[in-house]
C-alpha cells in the first residue's frame, strides 16, 4: 500500500476513498425516542393520547425545557451550570417582590429576566477570574443564590397580589384556547435558538470553543468572552422561565425549580448534546424534555405517586448519561481511534 521510492503517492496515508456515510442529524435519536414513547404510552393507557393531556405535557415541559435550551449552549462549551434552578427561583422571587412593591408587572418581569442574566454574568466572570470550571463555580453560586432566595422569600410560598392584572392572565392563558402560553414561548425560543447555534457567528464560536478551546484561542476566538456569554444566556433563559412560572402559577414556592438544572442537563444529553462539548442540538434538547415529561405524565396517569418523581428523575438522568456515554464508546470503537504520535 505504501511506496517509499518514487514521489507521487502519499506514503503513509490510507489509500482508499472516504466512504460516503449518510450522517443522520443528531436529533434523529431523540425524535425516534419520543415517537416510540408516545406510541407505547398511548397503547398502555389511551387517555394519554387525549389532546388535553398532550398539551399538559407540553406546558409542563415548557419551563424546564427553556432551561434545557440554555444549557445546550453551556454544555457545548464543555461547561456545566448547576445553578440554573436557583436562578429560576431567585428571578421569580425577585419579580414577585417588585410587584408587591408596586411595580408594573410587565416591568417587573423584565427586571426579573435581567436579574437572571446578571446572575449568569456573575457566574461567567467568576469562571474567568478564578480560572475554574463552571461546574465548580456554579456549585458555590448555587448555594449563594439559593440562600438569597430563601432569605428574600423567608422560606415561604410567595404569591404577589394583583391577580387580576394583565400579566397573570396572559401568562396563565392559552392561545387559540388550547395551547398554553408557556408552550408557545418554549416553541418559539427553541426555533430561535436553533438558528442562533447553527447560523450565527456566536453559535459558531460556541461550537469551536467546545470542540478545542486551545485551537480556538490560537485562531483568535475570544474563548473567555464566549463562555461568559453562554452563561449569561443561560441565566437570562432561567430568569425568563422563572418569570413565566410566576405569571402562570401566580406564586413561587420554595421547592420550585429544584431539579430543573439536572433535568435540563439530562434533556440536552438525550437530545444529542454531548458532555464533551463541541456540538449541540437545541431541538434535540426540547424533544428530550418532552420525553422526560411524557414519562412523568404517564406515571401520574397510572396513579403512581408523586413521590416517585424524584426517583424517576434521578434514574432517567443516570440512564441518559449512561446511554450517551455508551454511544460515544461505540462510535470510538468503530472508528478505531487512537493517538498516532506520542
Amino acid at each position: 500500500m505504501t511506496k517509499t521510492d518514487t514521489a507521487p503517492p502519499l506514503a503513509g496515508s490510507a489509500n482508499h476513498q472516504p466512504r460516503r456515510r449518510i450522517r443522520l442529524p443528531a436529533e434523529t435519536g431523540a425524535v425516534v425516542a419520543l415517537a416510540v414513547l408516545v406510541a407505547v404510552l398511548g397503547w398502555l393507557s389511551p387517555s394519554f393520547l387525549e389532546p388535553a393531556n398532550l398539551l399538559s405535557v407540553l406546558s409542563q415541559a415548557a419551563l424546564p425545557g427553556l432551561l434545557a435550551i440554555g444549557m445546550v449552549f453551556v454544555l457545548a462549551t464543555r461547561e456545566i451550570d448547576v445553578s440554573a434552578g436557583a436562578v429560576f427561583h431567585l428571578a421569580a422571587t425577585f419579580t414577585a417582590l417588585l410587584m408587591v412593591a408596586g411595580m408594573d408587572p410587565w416591568l417587573a418581569a423584565l427586571a426579573g429576566v435581567t436579574a437572571g442574566a446578571g446572575l449568569g454574568l456573575i457566574n461567567g466572570l467568576l469562571v474567568i477570574a478564578l480560572r475554574l470550571p463552571a461546574l465548580l463555580v456554579t456549585l458555590g453560586t448555587w448555594w449563594m443564590i439559593q440562600g438569597l432566595s430563601l432569605v428574600a422569600g423567608k422560606g415561604q410560598t410567595f404569591a404577589p397580589t394583583g391577580a387580576g392584572s394583565g400579566f397573570f392572565t396572559t401568562l396563565s392563558g392559552k392561545a387559540f384556547t388550547v395551547v398554553p402560553a408557556a408552550g408557545i414561548v418554549f416553541v418559539v425560543l427553541t426555533m430561535a435558538m436553533h438558528v442562533v447555534l447553527h447560523r450565527t457567528r456566536f453559535g459558531y464560536r460556541v461550537q469551536a470553543v467546545g470542540s478545542n478551546p486551545l485551537a480556538a484561542t490560537y485562531a483568535g476566538i475570544p474563548t473567555g468572552k464566549v463562555k461568559v456569554l453562554t452563561l449569561v444566556l443561560m441565566g437570562a433563559v432561567a430568569g425568563l422561565a422563572g418569570v413565566i412560572h410566576l405569571g402562570s402559577q401566580g406564586a413561587i414556592a420554595p421547592g420550585d425549580g429544584g431539579t430543573f438544572a439536572l433535568l435540563a442537563i439530562a434533556a440536552a444529553i438525550i437530545g444529542g448534546t454531548s458532555l464533551s462539548g463541541g456540538s449541540g442540538s437545541v431541538i434535540g434538547a426540547a424533544i428530550g424534555m418532552l420525553v422526560l415529561q411524557a414519562i412523568q405524565s404517564a406515571m401520574t396517569l397510572h396513579g403512581v405517586d408523586a413521590i416517585w418523581t424524584a426517583f424517576t428523575t434521578g434514574a432517567l438522568v443516570v440512564l441518559a448519561l449512561a446511554i450517551d456515554r455508551l454511544i460515544r464508546l461505540w462510535r470510538d470503537w468503530r472508528a478505531g481511534h487512537g493517538d498516532p504520535l506520542g
Partner: peptide, 23 residues
Amino acid sequence: RGNGLMADKSIAFNMANVVVGAR
C-alpha cells in the same frame, strides 16, 4: 496538532476558524 485542529468538526468548519470565528 492539538493546538490548531478541531478533530470532531468537519474540515469545512475548521477552515472557517479564522475567517468567521475570529473576525
